[in-house]
Amino acid sequence: QSSFEIPDDVPLPAGWEMAKTSSGQRYFLNHIDQTTTWQDPRKAMLSQMN
């Protein structure tokens, strides 16, 4: 996992939702293809902008 956290005020891509496990770990739900991931989809968006 990357060492940086994206602030919560940065919006997720369309169709995504952020949730937390009972222990507080963030994960991401993709409602478009109905998958979940630990990888923040905003990181991919930001790396494409740089």
Rank of each mutant, 00 (worst) to 15 (best):
Thr21Asn: 06
Asn30Ala: 00
Arg26Pro: 08
Gln25Val: 11
Thr36Asp: 00
Met45Thr: 14
His31Ser: 09
Ala44Asp: 14
Tyr27Asn: 01
Thr37Phe: 01
Met18Trp: 05
Asp9Trp: 04
Phe28Trp: 07
Pro11Ile: 07
Glu5Lys: 08
Leu29Asp: 01
Asp8Glu: 11
Asn30Cys: 10
Thr21Phe: 03
Pro7Lys: 13
Ser23Lys: 13
Glu17Thr: 12
Met49Asn: 15
Asn50Met: 02
Trp38Phe: 12
Leu29His: 05
Phe28Lys: 02
Ile32Arg: 10
Leu12Asn: 00
Phe4Leu: 08
Asp33Gly: 09
Ala44Arg: 12
Arg26Cys: 11
Ile6Tyr: 11
Glu17Ile: 00
Ser22Ala: 13
Thr36Phe: 03
Arg26Glu: 09
Arg26Phe: 06
Gln25Leu: 11
Thr21Lys: 04
Asp9Lys: 10
Ile32Ser: 09
Ile6Gly: 05
Leu29Cys: 08
Gln39Ser: 10
Thr36Trp: 01
Asn50Thr: 03
Gly15Thr: 04
Thr36Gly: 04
Thr37Ser: 11
Trp16Lys: 05
Phe28Glu: 01
Phe4Pro: 08
Asp40Asn: 02
Glu5His: 09
Thr36Cys: 10
Thr21Met: 06
Asn50Pro: 15
Trp38Leu: 08
Pro13His: 00
Ser22Val: 11
Ser23His: 10
Phe28Tyr: 07
Lys20Ile: 11
Lys20Ser: 11
Ser22Asp: 12
Asn30Leu: 00
Thr21Ser: 10
Thr37Lys: 02
Thr37Ala: 04
Glu17Ser: 13
Ser22Arg: 12
His31Gln: 07
Thr36Gln: 04
Arg26Asn: 15
Asp33Pro: 00
Lys20Leu: 13
Gln34Thr: 05
Pro41Cys: 00
Ala19Asn: 10
Phe4Tyr: 14
Leu46His: 13
Gly15Leu: 02
Asp9Cys: 10
Gln48Asn: 07
Lys43Gln: 04
Met18Ile: 08
Thr21Ala: 08
Trp38Ile: 04
Lys20Gly: 05
Phe4Thr: 11
Phe4Asp: 13
Asp9Met: 08
Glu5Trp: 08
Val10Lys: 09
Gln39Val: 13
Ser23Thr: 11
Ala44Glu: 12
Asn30Ile: 00
Leu46Lys: 14
Ser23Gly: 12
Pro41His: 00
Leu12Gln: 03
Gln34Glu: 08
Gln39Ala: 10
Arg42Ala: 01
Glu17Gln: 11
Arg26Trp: 08
Ser47Asp: 13
Pro7Phe: 07
Ile6Cys: 11
Thr35His: 03
Asp40Arg: 01
Thr37Leu: 01
Thr35Cys: 15
Ala14Met: 11
Lys20Asn: 10
Phe28Pro: 01
Asp33Gln: 13
His31Ile: 06
Phe4Trp: 03
Thr21Cys: 06
Ala14Glu: 14
Ile6Pro: 07
Gly24Ser: 05
Ser2Phe: 07
His31Pro: 05
Ser3Ala: 05
Phe28Val: 02
Trp38Pro: 05
Asn50Gly: 06
Thr21Pro: 03
Phe28Leu: 02
Pro13Thr: 01
Glu17Asp: 12
Gly15Gln: 04
Asp9Val: 07
Ser23Arg: 10
Ser3Thr: 08
Met49Gly: 15
Asn30Asp: 05
Asp40Gln: 01
Gly24Ile: 00
Ser3Asp: 11
Leu12Asp: 01
Pro7His: 15
Ser2His: 07
Ala14Trp: 07
Gln34Ser: 11
Gln34Tyr: 06
Glu17Met: 05
Pro41Glu: 02
Trp16Ser: 04
Ala14Pro: 15
Ala19Glu: 06
Pro41Ile: 00
Gln25Asn: 09
Trp38Cys: 04
Ser3Gln: 00
Trp38Asp: 05
Glu5Gln: 12
Thr21Val: 05
Leu46Arg: 13
Val10Trp: 04
Ala14Asn: 12
Ser2Arg: 09
Thr35Trp: 11
Thr37Gly: 03
Leu29Ile: 15
Ser47Gln: 15
Glu17Phe: 00
Leu12Ala: 04
Gly24Pro: 02
Gly15Tyr: 05
Ala19His: 08
Glu17Asn: 05
Met45Cys: 12
Gln48Ile: 07
Gln25Ala: 14
Ile6Val: 08
Thr37Gln: 05
Thr21Ile: 05
Ile6Asn: 07
Met18Phe: 04
Ser2Lys: 08
Asp8Thr: 09
Pro41Val: 00
Gln1Arg: 04
Asp33Tyr: 15
Phe28Ile: 02
Met45Phe: 14
Trp38Val: 07
Val10Asn: 12
Thr37Asn: 01
Arg42Pro: 00
Ile6Gln: 07
Ser22Met: 10
Ala44His: 10
Thr35Ser: 11
Met18Arg: 07
Tyr27Pro: 01
Val10Cys: 09
Glu5Gly: 07
Leu29Glu: 04
Phe28Gly: 02
Lys43Val: 10
His31Tyr: 06
Asp8Leu: 06
Asp8Ser: 10
Pro11Val: 10
Met49Val: 14
Gln25Asp: 15
Asn50Tyr: 08
Gly15Ser: 06
Asn30Met: 00
Pro13Gly: 04
Glu17Gly: 13
Thr35Glu: 10
Leu46Gln: 14
Ser47Tyr: 03
Pro7Arg: 13
Pro7Asp: 15
Glu5Cys: 12
Ser3Phe: 03
Ala14Cys: 07
Glu5Thr: 14
Pro11Tyr: 04
Trp16Ala: 04
Thr21Glu: 06
Ser2Trp: 04
Thr36Ser: 05
